[in-house]
């Protein structure tokens, strides 16, 4: 078999991204998480930030790139899951899934950690904390932020 017949090896994180419903185009985001950095997709023309990656609603893909973000935001809405629907959450119920409104604008779905469930409230200031996930990915979770 010649070298040209070989398929390029899939990125080591791609399988986990796909298994958990992620989009392959967001791989740079997950790579950065493994390095402790929280990125967003930004349009260089108008400055709008996006997550997950997409074209700008005004400028298409003319100037989209991944940029470092603050990792700060607030609880926009949330639910306390009392049922485990995924294998790796079976020993965690009840747990909180929040929609975080990031400072840059986009929403990010995540767990709220280091916080009692009954203390979670809409508007609560948050900061990102990177955590290992059983899939092998490093995932951003959020905890209360003391300003």
């Amino acid at each position: 078999m010649s070298a040209t017949d070989q398929q390029p090896a899939e990125h080591p994180l791609m399988g986990a991204v796909r298994q958990y419903g992620g989009d392959p185009v967001d791989l740079p985001f997950w790579e950065a998480c493994a390095q402790g950095s929280f990125l967003l997709h930004q349009c260089g023309q108008c400055g709008r930030h996006y997550w997950p990656a997409s074209r700008c609603i005004e400028h298409g893909d003319a100037a989209m790139s991944w940029v470092a973000a603050s990792g700060r935001g607030e609880v926009y809405t949330y639910t306390v899951m009392h049922r485990a629907y995924t294998p790796d959450t079976r020993d965690k119920v009840p747990f909180v899934i929040a929609v975080v409104r990031l400072e840059e604008g986009p929403f990010y779905h995540s767990n709220i950690v280091d916080c009692p469930h009954d203390a979670v409230a809409v508007g609560m200031p948050l900061e990102v904390v990177m955590q290992p996930h059983p899939s092998g990915l490093t995932i951003p979770q959020f905890r209360p932020r003391g300003d």
Partner: peptide, 23 residues
């Protein structure tokens, strides 16, 4: 599934509608 939030245990329409209810 609703995309990457499955990493955080999100599965099913009840949870996604709960976001509307909580808001």
């Amino acid at each position: 599934g609703y995309g990457y939030p499955m990493l955080y245990g999100l599965l099913g329409a009840a949870a996604t509608h709960a976001f509307h209810a909580r808001r």
